[in-house]
């Protein structure tokens, strides 16, 4: 049988996608859609759907890339050209086929729910009526051993946070910053974390302050995620964060080791941003 569906980069008929987005207030723009009132631009790419929002120049007060862990949803700050943007990225395959068809059968709209998730969490809010997955269901999606990353002598234990208003994966990359860590070393560590945040979608990095001290963490915050995406996005996120922990672990460990002497690391890294596109 001939496939008569219209091709689109989103894997959905373009007209159908445009109709859904227009009903949410988006207007068509070159290469994507814009929601002018929120300053948002949506690009439904072949691999990733991205929502971008410009937050200001490098010198503006809001220019810090690393955020405090726990902000609901996938939003994070990344470098884009000479400036900084807020970015919400989602694997495009999750919005295709089975997930979307299941939701449509149930009279819901997955694209609409996903955009609503992004809009609500952009303001730091959790969509009304949202709840994290049930513990028993969550446990059926993965093995607990996947929360342990061993890479040679490097070892980290991650955690799944399921609270009524939070659903997140979190791995410490440096479990405890040593008290003697110099400002220059910490600045190098920050640069490494920013690099990771820029490099990988879904992953967010930050400093977590506890009564015991400060740790550097990686997280994927799925708070507010539509129910139809729960399992697929969780499984994808777990793989992504494990990969990032592998990638970051050894250099982060080395930078945080106060017994390592280095003339280079005694000097703060350049604060001038390097051009790069996430």
């Amino acid at each position: 049988m001939m496939n008569t569906r219209i091709w689109s980069t989103a894997g959905r008929p373009a007209a159908e996608l445009a109709e859904v987005l227009h009903s949410l207030g988006f207007t068509s723009a070159a290469g994507g859609y814009e929601l002018v009132s929120e300053g948002l631009r949506l690009e439904p790419g072949r691999s990733w759907w991205t929502l971008r929002q410009r937050v200001g120049d490098e010198d503006s007060p809001g220019a810090e890339l690393l955020m405090s862990p726990g902000h609901p949803g996938l939003w994070k700050r990344v470098r884009f050209g000479d400036g900084i943007e807020r970015l919400f990225a989602l694997p495009a395959r999750l919005l295709r086929t089975e997930n979307a068809e299941q939701e449509e059968r149930e009279g819901e709209n997955l694209i609409g729910q996903t955009i609503q998730w992004a809009l609500e969490t952009a303001k730091g809010r959790v969509p009304e009526g949202w709840a994290p997955p049930e513990p028993g269901l969550l446990d059926s999606w993965f093995g607990r051993e996947q929360l342990t990353v061993v890479n040679g002598g490097f070892l980290r234990q991650g955690d799944v946070i399921t609270e009524p208003t939070q659903f997140a994966l979190r791995f410490p990359i440096v479990p405890m910053l040593p008290p003697g860590l110099t400002p220059a070393r910490r600045a190098w560590l920050r640069v490494l974390l920013e690099e990771a945040q820029n490099r990988w979608h879904l992953i967010r990095c930050g400093w977590l302050e506890t009564p015991d001290g400060i740790s550097a963490v990686l997280e994927v915050d799925l708070t507010g995620v539509p129910r139809a995406l729960h399992e697929d996005l969780f499984v994808t996120s777990l793989e992504a964060v494990r990969w990032a922990v592998h990638w970051l672990g050894e250099p982060a460990d080395w930078l945080a080791d106060v017994t390592v002497a280095s003339g280079l690391l005694a000097v703060c890294p350049s604060e001038k941003p390097t051009k790069g596109v996430p």
Partner: peptide, 18 residues
């Protein structure tokens, strides 16, 4: 700075590597 929640088997593997 070993995380208390880490399974002991994984800790043994990492220490053996070190």
């Amino acid at each position: 700075n070993v995380q208390p929640a880490t399974p002991a088997g994984a800790v043994a593997t990492a220490l053996a590597s070190r």
